[in-house]
Structure formats: structure tokens, C-alpha cells
Design a binder for these strands. Structure first.
Length: 591
DNA sequence: CCGATCACGTA
DNA sequence: AACGTACGTGATCGTA
């Protein structure tokens, strides 16, 4: 123990029985100082005598809660969560190989230690399946013999310790050491804290919505079956296609691998042809929302906290964004009326508290202005203009007051489409103009915003010559197929290359803001909690006494997290749930 | 039981 | 002829 506490650096893994570290069902600790000094400390193994968890945690508490030694691990957010369940706040989370591997190649979806050992050290190690089995017969960690578990986790720890300096050297070589140390690693405990905080959900309300939707769905189903003269499962694209394109003889459009497509765009095109089509579209929408949110959310409420605790994944999205799962709280509906009903179910956990939502306004266009230094774009943001109206004015060559609603709409589609590598075909499809008109429109756009065109061309060249593109903080994404002779593949690669620097830079900025704000809340001993992040939005749960304090500090910290050459603007809303929110403030940080 | 496919929600 | 980027989830369906 003295050796461990006195070390500068120590490998650490908290082995849990189940896959939800937040539950804190710790099976063992693994600690390693070097290749010869690795300890496996079992606390839960069936059949075999183990140490008492309580005693073990007490002995290690000082080590866990000290910033030194620095801890090296693989997926340290899980370690933090498992210990937090026992009231221990893990400190010194300095070196997570999972996070490092992600920075080194964000294209690999959730790299494994096995893959790292193989790729970096050319060494084969056992995967989890070898020890635990797979599928229905899989054992949990507590069911495995201690000796076998110790050998398995011991080897992983030795590999972890051996890999760390190799990955560090690679990070330095790529110029990503600072991004790793100052952004991604500090973010690890921030995400863990958000997950632990969770979000309260109004269960009685959701149950009521579920009943309403059930009734509506039954009615729609009946009306559809009346037309079909028999039972039909509207959720089955196969049955639906047979009904629409064979029984009703409606004109089939796009094909999928297995027949005619029945997706929303196809059905929208058939709406006028038969009254049943509208009913099908409505059924689809209600059924989707009921199944994915209204009925699924209550099942994910933790019985101890009465809240849903999503997982924020830091090592999945190739652009540097976070993703959310179990449940995915980053795709809660907002557009439709039923969707808004779902949003109303997200509430503060304590009566009287409020939800505060802060979102970056036009952050991607502002990032684009920053990266391109385009004089027109920069001028528009500097003046605080309506950016889409200004774009329309520039493209149509008219004064801004004369821009019509339709012209503004077209400009908006182009402004959003830019980041996706917009084509004349895509623009035509989204706006209803011909591809010829779309081509002219895009040409006019790039004449007005020539620096944007040069920037996008430059990205493609960089991708082609270097094989990767990067964000303002030098986060990299390697671009496959960018030199492919196959035009389809190459153009797809070009779109990916164009999208990443802007989307990824916005993600960089948001991550900086999250770190600052979490630090601030902690230092000021505030009770307000950061509970959600949705790409350009942060949501907080706020006691009334802290309301004014948060209204001051949240937008200010967000807007100044990473100063751009244009003002960064943050919209602030406050309300009793995630839907019914009122704008309270709009803050623009000077460029 | 699992994976592929289709469809669809968000930024 | 083509069908912008990034994600995660649910239902169905065919296979093991």
C-alpha cells in the first residue's frame, strides 16, 4: 500500500459485476505499478472467500481520492462511476487509454484494449469472451474463479501500463497531447457527474400520454384496416408495400433492397392519391414516438433515484461530438405536437426547481466565419444581422429589407447544407427548385462568399494530401477513400471531410464550456446541476435561489469558452419542463 | 437469440 | 444516375 501511495503513476481498474458501473457492484480492484507489481483484489466471487468491499475501499480511499499518483486506465469514466456509488470521488484521472485511442483515430468505433494491443504492440491478448463466454451462457465476473480472473485482468493491466507511453508518444507526434490533457481527460469526470445527476421524468404524465396515443393508434389502425379489408401491420414495411403498391395500385417510387420503399418522403408524395396514406403517416409518427419514448423511458427510470441516467459516450462519434445512449437523450422530439408532449415529461427533480437551457446560436456558421475569415460572413455576425436574410441579400444581389420570406428560406437551406457538402441535386430536392436553378443559386452563393468556397476547396485538398482534416483544437479525422478512383466514394469522402472541421470545432467549444461550468459549479458549492448536453445545448437543473446566479454565469462561460473572430451568442431559456421554456437572456461575447 | 433492414428522432 | 453530415433505437423478419 505504501508503494502504491508513493508512486507517481499507477494503473487502476475497478472491475464491476454488471455492465452498469453506476450501480457500484464492484467485483474486484486491479492496481499496477509496473510489469512486476500488479495486484488483483477480489471482493465478490461466488464460492470463494473474498475480502470485504467495505474494508478494501477504506484501505484504498486515500489512494483513490488523491490527485497523485496519476491513474492510468481504460474507460476511467466507468471507474469514477463505480467508486462514486460508494461515496468515493476518484481523483487523478489523467490517462485513459480508451480516450487516447479515440483521439489517435476517431474513426474506430469504441476501440478495445485487445485491438490496441494488437495494433500498437502486435500482441494478442484474450478478449472478455474467452473468460466469460458469450450470449445466454455468459458468466458475470463474480462467477469466475479468482485465479482465472486475476490472470485475465492482470494481463490487461500489464498491457495497459505498457501501452500508455507508446500512445503518449503518438499523441505528441500528432500534436494532440494538449487536446488530450486539457480537454478530453478533464471531460471524463464531468460526463460521469452529468450521468449520475440524471434527469427526472414525469411518469404519471407519460402514462397518460401513452393511453392517449394507444387510443389514437387503435382508431387509425381500424381506419386503415377498413380500407385494406383485413388485418395489416402498419409497422411492417413489407405488408405496407404490398397494400399500397399491389392492392391499391399506387405508383411505387424508390426501391430498397427488398422492394418498394414506404418511407415518409415516398408516402408524402402519395398523400393526394389516397386518403389512407395520411392515416398511415400519422400512425407511423405516433407509433414511433410511443414506442421509442413514451413507453421506453419509464422502463429506464432508476428505482433508487427516480431519474433516467443516460450514458454520454466520449469515444464514438468520428467528429468529436458526444453521443448519448440508454436512453439516447439527444434525439428527444421537438418539432411535432406529439414530440413536444414527450419533451414536457422532462422536469426538475424537486418541486420549485427550474430547468435552464442554454444553447449556442448558429455556432456552426460562426465557426465557419472564424475558420474562413470570410469578410461578408464576419461582417454579418459582427453586426448581429439575421444571417439567413443577409445571405439571401448577397446571393440575390438585393438590399436586405427587400428579401422575401421565400428567398430567406432558400438561403437558410444553403447555409445549413454547406456543412454537408451540398449539391445542386440535394438543394433542388429540399427546395423544390430545378437542379439548374440550384446550380445557379450555389454559384451565386460562392461568388458572394468566396472565402467559404476557398476554405471548402482547401479542406478537400488537405484531406487528399494529408489524409486527414482537423478542428480548431487540432482534433483529427482520417478520411478514407478521398483518393478513390470511384467518383461516388470520393465525393462521399469529400462530404465527410467538409463536415468534420466545422461540426468538430463546435464540439470542441462545447466541451470546453462544459468543463469550465462544472468546475465553476463545484468551486462555488452551487446545488445547480448540469444534467444534459445536446450538441449545442446545455441543460441545468436549478434551485430558485440560484436562478439569477446561473442566468449570469452559464451564458457568459459558454460564450467565452473559446473566443472566435465573430461574437459567440448564447440563448438562455427557463421553464418548468424541457418544452415550456421562456427566453430569459441572450448573451453575445464580443469577438 | 441475433443480425440485417427499414424507418425515423435529434443537432 | 445520383439522393449532403453525425448519431441511437425500435419493429419486423429471416436465420441460426
Amino acid at each position: 500500500m505504501t508503494a502504491i501511495a508513493g508512486a507517481a503513476v499507477a494503473g487502476l481498474q475497478i472491475v464491476t459485476v454488471d455492465e452498469v458501473p453506476r450501480h457500484g457492484r464492484i467485483a474486484a480492484l486491479v492496481v499496477g505499478l509496473d510489469q512486476r507489481q500488479v495486484w488483483y483484489v477480489p471482493v465478490v466471487h461466488e464460492q470463494e472467500a473474498c475480502l470485504q468491499l467495505k474494508d478494501v475501499l477504506n484501505r484504498f480511499k486515500g489512494f483513490f481520492e488523491a490527485a497523485r499518483p496519476s491513474k492510468i486506465g481504460f474507460n476511467q469514466k466507468a471507474d469514477y462511476l463505480a467508486l462514486a456509488a460508494h461515496g468515493i470521488q476518484l481523483q487523478g484521472i489523467d490517462w485513459d487509454l480508451l480516450v487516447a485511442a479515440y483521439l489517435l483515430n476517431s474513426g474506430v468505433r469504441s476501440p478495445s484494449l485487445e485491438a490496441l494491443a494488437s495494433d500498437v504492440m502486435h500482441r494478442t491478448i484474450e478478449g472478455r469472451e474467452a473468460l466469460f463466454g458469450t450470449g445466454k451462457t455468459a458468466m458475470t465476473c463474480d462467477q469466475v474463479e479468482i485465479a482465472r480472473a486475476a490472470a485475465f485482468f492482470g494481463e490487461r493491466m500489464r498491457v495497459t501500463l505498457e501501452l500508455q507511453p507508446l500512445l503518449q508518444a503518438q499523441l505528441v507526434r500528432l500534436g494532440n497531447a494538449e487536446l488530450f490533457r486539457d480537454l478530453e481527460m478533464p471531460l471524463v469526470p464531468v460526463l460521469a457527474e452529468i450521468e449520475m445527476a440524471g434527469v427526472a421524468v414525469d411518469l404519471p404524465y407519460l402514462q397518460q400520454v401513452s393511453r392517449e396515443l394507444y387510443d389514437q393508434l387503435r382508431r387509425l389502425d381500424q381506419e386503415i384496416e377498413d380500407v385494406a379489408h383485413g388485418p395489416i401491420n402498419v409497422n411492417s414495411p413489407q405488408q405496407l408495400a404490398r397494400f399500397l403498391f399491389e392492392d391499391l395500385n399506387l405508383p411505387g417510387g424508390r426501391k430498397t433492397k427488398s422492394g418498394y420503399s414506404t418511407d415518409a418522403t415516398v408516402l408524402e408524395g402519395l398523400r393526394e392519391q389516397h386518403p389512407v396514406v395520411g392515416k398511415i403517416l400519422e400512425y407511423r409518427q405516433l407509433s414511433k414516438l410511443k414506442g421509442t419514448y413514451v413507453d421506453a423511458l419509464p422502463l429506464l427510470v432508476d428505482s433508487r433515484t427516480h431519474r433516467v441516467h443516460t450514458s454520454f459516450n466520449q469515444t464514438v462519434a468520428a467528429t468529436g461530438r458526444l453521443s448519448s445512449s440508454d436512453p439516447n437523450l439527444q434525439n428527444i422530439p421537438i418539432r411535432t405536437e406529439v414530440g413536444q408532449k414527450v419533451r414536457r415529461a422532462f422536469i426538475p427533480g424537486r418541486t420549485g426547481d427550474l430547468l435552464l437551457s442554454a444553447d449556442y446560436s448558429q455556432i456552426e456558421l460562426r465557426v465557419l466565419a472564424h475558420m474562413t475569415d470570410d469578410p461578408v460572413l464576419v461582417d454579418a455576425f459582427a453586426r448581429g444581422e439575421d444571417i439567413h436574410a443577409r445571405t439571401a441579400a448577397e446571393v440575390f444581389g438585393i438590399p436586405q429589407p427587400e428579401v422575401t420570406a421565400n428567398q430567406r428560406r432558400l438561403a437558410k437551406v444553403v447555409n445549413f447544407g454547406l456543412f454537408y457538402g451540398l449539391s445542386d441535386f440535394g438543394l433542388a430536392r429540399d427546395t423544390g427548385m430545378s437542379t439548374e436553378e440550384a446550380r445557379v443559386f450555389i454559384d451565386a452563393y460562392f461568388r458572394a462568399y468566396s472565402r467559404v468556397r476557398e476554405f471548402l476547396e482547401g479542406i478537400k485538398i488537405q484531406a487528399r494530401e494529408q489524409g486527414y482534416v482537423e478542428t480548431v483544437l487540432h482534433r483529427r479525422r482520417y478520411i478514407q477513400d478521398i483518393r478513390s478512383p470511384n467518383r461516388m466514394l470520393r465525393q462521399a469522402a469529400e462530404r465527410i471531410a467538409i463536415n468534420m472541421p466545422v461540426q468538430g470545432s463546435a464540439a470542441d467549444i462545447m466541451k470546453l464550456a462544459m468543463i469550465r461550468l462544472q468546475r465553476y459549479l463545484q468551486e462555488q458549492h452551487l446545488e445547480s446541476r448540469m444534467i444534459l448536453t445536446v450538441h449545442d445545448e446545455l441543460v441545468f437543473e436549478v434551485p430558485p435561489a440560484e436562478r439569477d446566479h446561473l442566468i449570469e454565469v452559464v451564458p457568459d462561460q459558454m460564450a467565452t469558452a473559446y473566443p472566435l473572430t465573430v461574437p459567440v451568442q448564447v440563448d438562455l431559456k427557463l421553464g418548468p419542463n424541457w418544452q415550456d421554456m421562456e427566453r430569459v437572456r441572450l448573451v453575445a461575447a464580443k469577438a
